[in-house]
Design a protein around this nucleic acid. Structure first.
Lengths: 199, 199
DNA sequence: ATCCGTCTTGACCGACCAGTCAACTAGGCA
DNA sequence: TGCCTAGTTGACTGGTCGGTCAAGACGGAT
């Protein structure tokens, strides 16, 4: 038994925080242990390696993201699409408040750093992105069958474009230190650009 | 005097390669030196620190990118906008051929990993992105004054959206190991989505 | 011939890295 | 009571990290 929270969960949560505030390679296992209030032996009781912890951190973010996207609902398909933009913005605003600045996307950060260096982690991230994209695609398909998308817009490709736009805008906001509201604004514009006039 | 190439330039070039194939923190100064055929003392003769080398690597990529964007020309503003998509695709195809896979964007990779960890590097990357964005914005403004953009499309915001889309698509391609042609295809679609019908 | 600035060499540093281990503690259960 | 298992502890390892340094090599100018 841990103190308030189980040790394992404390490790994952505080690691998520540290990975976001700096990066995977920039944070040592020692520092992760200190932040979690745990000795190194305990850490390696729960996780066979640092990269295995990273997978757990990814899973934590995945469930959090999927929850957030579920909550974000609107009436019409067009509103639901705009709801996506708001959801991403809300998440990023949350990070902004917790860290005092834009720290990037948990998935995007790890993907940039590790996709070419750790094949297992790359695969893990790929499935996380796939689930994310699937959520987007479901809403895009709804919009398509409701006929609110412009002619010739493929819902699957729009979903990927939205995901890419989110990743790119988050990255640009991180490097140029702008606010999270810019991110959702850009996403709203991208949604509008693909909706039929009047929606 | 170095062998064929000056030592400094060999260090920068081979470091650019190694940073792309893995990541900044995943490559040690020792490895950078070995790859460049240089002893550590020489390395620190040219660069006061590893992060200072990173700045030189960024500068190398910046001049290469700006050259590539300059070459990419078309007749009409619409063609020039599509030329951007091709230029990004060409660069990524080049990396794909050299490395055997998508390795990401040199700027994006470093930005994700270091923007929150090294303030000087973050600033350096920010100005690199600004110059990149300025190139895009110039073409978008041309398109706007030629009247080929859809009503209500702000050229400056379109430039940023294109840049973000490029970054996001490159990241997604890297993590899901798709080909570079997907990246330019997505950019072409985004351009089309903002051009008036018939252009 | 000598001097000087640029570049190179190789040995060296302390700090830190991810990961290991045997011994210990504490609860659940028979 | 005694045992089993999950979790904890702290000391330890060997290798690597970014970075330093004194001594030298080399070519161009004087």
């Amino acid at each position: 038994m841990g103190q308030k929270l189980e040790s394992r969960e404390r490790i994952v949560r505080s690691s998520a925080r540290l990975f976001l505030s700096r990066s995977y390679n920039a944070v040592s296992v020692d520092e992760l242990c200190t932040a979690a209030g745990v000795r190194k032996g305990s850490f390696y009781h729960f996780f066979p390696s640092k990269s295995e912890l990273a997978k757990a951190v990814i899973d934590l973010h995945t469930t959090a993201l999927l929850d957030r996207l579920e909550q974000a609902s609107g009436q019409s398909p067009a509103e639901r699409l705009h709801g996506l933009a708001d959801a991403v913005g809300t998440i990023q605003t949350g990070f902004e408040n917790r860290f005092g600045r834009i720290v990037g996307c948990p998935f995007g950060n790890l993907a940039s750093e590790l996709a070419t260096a750790d094949e297992e982690l790359r695969e893990h991230l790929a499935t996380a992105f796939t689930r994310w994209e699937a959520e987007f695609a479901a809403l895009c398909r709804q919009a398509a069958s409701a006929g609110v998308l412009r002619d010739g817009v493929d819902p699957e490709r729009l979903a990927r474009a939205l995901l890419a736009q989110a990743q790119g805008q988050i990255l640009l906001a991180k490097v140029s230190v702008t606010s999270a509201s810019e991110i959702s604004r850009a996403l709203h514009e991208l949604v509008d650009a693909h909706l039929r006039e009047g929606y």
